[in-house]
Design a protein around this nucleic acid. Sequence first.
DNA 1: ACCGCAAAGTTACCAGTGCTTACATACAAC
DNA 2: GTTGTATGTAAGCACTGGTAACTTTGCGGT
Lengths: 213, 213
Amino acid sequence: MGEAHKLKRGDLRDALVEYALQATRDGHIEVMSLRQAARDLGVSSGAVYRHFADKDTLLAEIVKIGHCVLRGKFIAIRPEGAIAKTPQQAIDRCHDFVRTYITFAYENNALWHMMFGRIGMICREEMIKNPDLARYTPFDIGMELCRDLHRNGLTTRQPDVADNRYIWSAIHGAADLAQSGARMDHTELDQIITDTFHRNMRAIGLDLDHHKT
Amino acid sequence: MGEAHKLKRGDLRDALVEYALQATRDGHIEVMSLRQAARDLGVSSGAVYRHFADKDTLLAEIVKIGHCVLRGKFIAIRPEGAIAKTPQQAIDRCHDFVRTYITFAYENNALWHMMFGRIGMICREEMIKNPDLARYTPFDIGMELCRDLHRNGLTTRQPDVADNRYIWSAIHGAADLAQSGARMDHTELDQIITDTFHRNMRAIGLDLDHHKT
DNA sequence: ACCGCAAAGTTACCAGTGCTTACATACAAC
DNA sequence: GTTGTATGTAAGCACTGGTAACTTTGCGGT
């Protein structure tokens, strides 16, 4: 609880973010108080407001980090401009995408709720204003993954945003249910991931029974 | 704000629920305080705890009502045992189901978040224990709607729970995005509803281009 | 080396919250 | 009527988010 090494002047902001991230990992972010955080960090309660206008601003920071982390995972799967070189790679990346999304929701329950809840709305606006984040969004990446399938001759039709929106919904819904529904073990989770993936492929006209996955 | 007619002894519980429901409709449920509620209802703050163990219990009540209302809409669409009599009716009901779910999320933003957020978990357990609510759940209704399609000769394959889970995810995801994403008008909403519906039908092997909707 | 000054942190305070406890009251059953 | 339970009250506790006025710290310019 009590942070051992007293932190140097000016390090409070980062320490607060790290504290909140830990609270998120521990699942009690929703009941975290700024005063307790200040106490644990060995600092007065007023000091917090030198770095964050209010509590929501700190929480928004956490949500933003969450989105960035997830986005980073997606970019690792399909870097910008890195068109899939083989049909198998295109397919594997789609599978990875689904796995990453659903697993993230499953493993970061509390953060997930914040990202798509009230706090999430706060950052949405400022995220689309950030030119670094506005380009090549997770939604864009999903779009590119669909196009990669077509580029590799796996689908006959050019995918459009309605295609992407639908399979995105299926993934998002599966992620939300995997995390909010009755507790499930990893094998069941894996099954949902693979099933969602296969059906999404079929939804854009790619029957994977003809390929190996 | 201030409730005009003083409420009779014993009416506080219902008044509190109604107050919270109104706060939900007005979208400020997340910042509602029990003390303010008591003040507005012309009652002392301690009285609240004669009827609800704590704040979460009251909120859980609201969430439960939300689930019941939504469930009621679903049952109205497909009453228990009421197998669709014609292929067209089976299809229409599926469309109604999707429309109801997504519209509900869109119109009840705050309630939606509560239903699938922290508070939602609290009632989940007690809802599955209630024998009235445990039977013929919304998920079951979705399942029956799929079976109705098959019963009316619209699909060749008997639907299973994996089918239902997938289309459920697609609906749930679309609902969540329709409500959490950038604001959209009713025509755009309608488009998402119809698109989700059509693609779900196709996902279980029913191409609606061969029927009129 | 000194000064100035802005950033960072402190103390003290306000208003408000959830919740508990001890007490007062209404009301129905006996 | 008396009694007992359900209901409501008053006062208080521990805590919260947030603000304002105050010190301290440490860095850049002369």
